[in-house]
Design a protein around this nucleic acid. Structure first.
Lengths: 349, 349
DNA sequence: AATGTTACTGGAAACGTTTTCAGGATTGCT
DNA sequence: AGCAATCCTGAAAACGTTTCCAGTAACATT
């Protein structure tokens, strides 16, 4: 079942069939409909290998994801896969371990599989424009940060939320509820990661409310998994630091944190409020329901693919899209303690 | 950078290079080492499209998954991807909606992408040997059931747990704790699904303990997602049916069920014990910790790929592997009510 | 009527690989 | 020495597609 069979059955040449299949303008309506007819009738499916061989590259897009265990990423992966298929490409998924270098992995993948482009999901982007140019293909960073600020913005595309602003929003929400001693749980603030940005938003929100950030209230889990989050929360609790609310940088970590709080005899939200960012399915079913800023996973996947495909198909250059989250109030945040007017929290209007 | 360049630089023909690259025996040691040398030097990577074009198939394996939102599947997908890469193949992921037909989707995928084989993950296998033979490629059903029993066992491979036996084990665990009125929450028992097998195990366990299964204690969610599970549990509770324990066919549904119990003022495990099957990460962090039978996701992925690759590479035919779960006791199961000797539960030795 | 323009079409080359086939060199046997 | 067998090699065809190029037909313009 090749293009030749279709051509014969339709009474045209293979060239014409090819043109029909690729939506070329120079083909008569009569020929077009006749070809489409036989294609349907024969259940003809083009051979991608042959197509890819003659074209400069493979009609495939890579998705490099670090830490696919994160349920938040599952949602993005699902959306990305759907969008890539809808655009007529094939997705090549590649999961990397925490130690590996995503750009390295992306380049390797792109070379061996001759990809048109790569989407990097989750991580930290720490490369110079020269290094990215060496890749030779377009790529977009989805839910990613980079440590160079706006320096090399034209070396790649990106789709993400404004991590600092959203963290600011979450912490401000807690402050508005009357909380003053607010702890933060993150995986690590050392590298130029999303965690760092969210940590900055946390600090800024406190400062703007006239509260001095206290390093004793910063709990670093070390790695991004629930076991580490649980342990990190336990360490924070053992330290005897005083706080009435906890901001966690990810839903999955927040679930573990709530468990740790419970295991230490603290009630959520009476003894400690919890807020997080992500909006994974599961967080709607914790007890109490987690208050969180829901990331638009579907839109993130969609925009990532669109950005990449537009570049691949010659429509415009790199762009940087920032999406907004939606606050889902849950039972995990309660009112803060009653303060005397003397030490009351100042909230900017 | 083609095979031709390598041939020229090595002073041999393309045929010889091809033979070296494919480990053909008929090539001199001298030529072999010379070619290998230049391959390394030029960083030559064979063009898979060209290779696939001339070969009957693509060096790729498909993974068709229904309901990738299920966190249990995420783990399997991760393992499968790793194993496929390790075996030198490419994984092509395809997620289907609940309405779609997985064999249809698998066949379509296999044809359009010229796959060597397909792994079907999660669902119900309802085809006759003739239909599967029409596919023309080997496939393995991972975490799947089929309604034909052992009739067409040689038409495909499978890797799964013994769903009925494991459900039996879970329910028996509840009975041993003293529970007698045990409800079950499943997505649907109509089709020949995993749910049905687990439902049968549930019934059998009750019968073997001398308890008559009561249809009033069967809660059907309708679909496999947490919202439906929540609703299904609520319906069960509104029905005023009396039960002291709940067996849920999946961890993610159990999380939603616990939430529903809580929202109706019932405590777990004091008022109702909960046990499930799956062992997703999250279930270790519910409050209380979910008692569950942990499925060996890594082994499932690994065995699925091994089975398929063995067939692809000509080592043996279809095989059927059954793995065991591991019981993780959690706080979600407590002792049942105290019975008088008159209506005490009979437990088989 | 001749010419130019437009709209469409088919032939053929090209993509990079594998594999068949035939043949050349070397070796072993008589 | 002659012949067969063995081992290795290269030429060439094939895989299914896209695209360049040349060409035809119809139509409009002079």
């Amino acid at each position: 079942m090749t293009i030749k069979d279709v051509a014969e059955r339709s009474g045209v040449s293979v060239s014409t069939v090819s043109r029909v299949l690729n939506n070329h303008p120079d083909v008569s309506e009569a020929a077009r409909s006749r070809v489409m007819e036989t294609v349907r009738k024969l259940h003809y499916v083009p051979n991608n290998s042959a197509r890819d061989l003659v074209r400069p590259q493979t009609a495939a897009i890579g998705l490099v994801v670090r830490g696919a265990g994160n349920p938040f990423f599952s949602g993005v992966i699902r959306a990305v896969e759907q969008e890539i298929n809808a655009a007529g490409y094939t997705m090549v998924l590649h999961q990397i371990r925490s130690g590996e270098d995503e750009l390295q992995a992306g380049a390797e993948l792109a070379r061996s599989k001759r990809l048109l482009g790569v989407i990097l999901l989750g991580g930290c982007f720490d490369y110079t424009p020269e290094q990215t140019a060496a890749l030779g293909i377009p790529f977009v960073c989805c839910s990613f940060t980079n440590s160079f600020g706006s320096l090399n913005k034209d070396a790649y595309s990106s789709v993400s939320i404004d991590d600092q602003a959203e963290a600011y929003r979450a912490v401000t929400f807690l402050i508005r509820q009357g909380h003053k001693n607010i702890a933060i749980l993150l995986d690590s603030k050392q590298d130029h990661s999303i965690s760092e940005l969210r940590y900055r938003g946390y600090c800024q929100a406190l400062l703007d409310a006239g509260i001095a950030p206290d390093t004793a209230l910063v709990a670093e889990a070390g790695t991004f998994d629930m076991a580490a989050a649980y342990e990190g929360t336990c360490r924070l609790l053992r330290s005897q630091a005083e706080f009435t609310a906890l901001f966690v940088i990810a839903d999955s970590m927040a679930v573990a944190a709530m468990k740790a709080l419970h295991d230490h005899g603290l009630r959520v939200p009476e003894d400690c409020s919890v807020i997080a960012i992500d909006g994974i399915d599961m967080s709607a079913y914790t007890i109490p329901t987690l208050t969180t800023l829901i990331q638009p996973v579907g839109a993130m996947g969609k925009e990532s693919v669109h950005s990449l495909v537009d570049i691949i198909e010659g429509r415009g250059g790199n762009r940087h899209i920032q999406l907004r989250t939606a606050l889902r109030p849950g039972g995990s945040v309660g009112a803060g303690p009653v303060f005397t007017s003397a030490n009351d929290v100042k909230i900017k209007p």
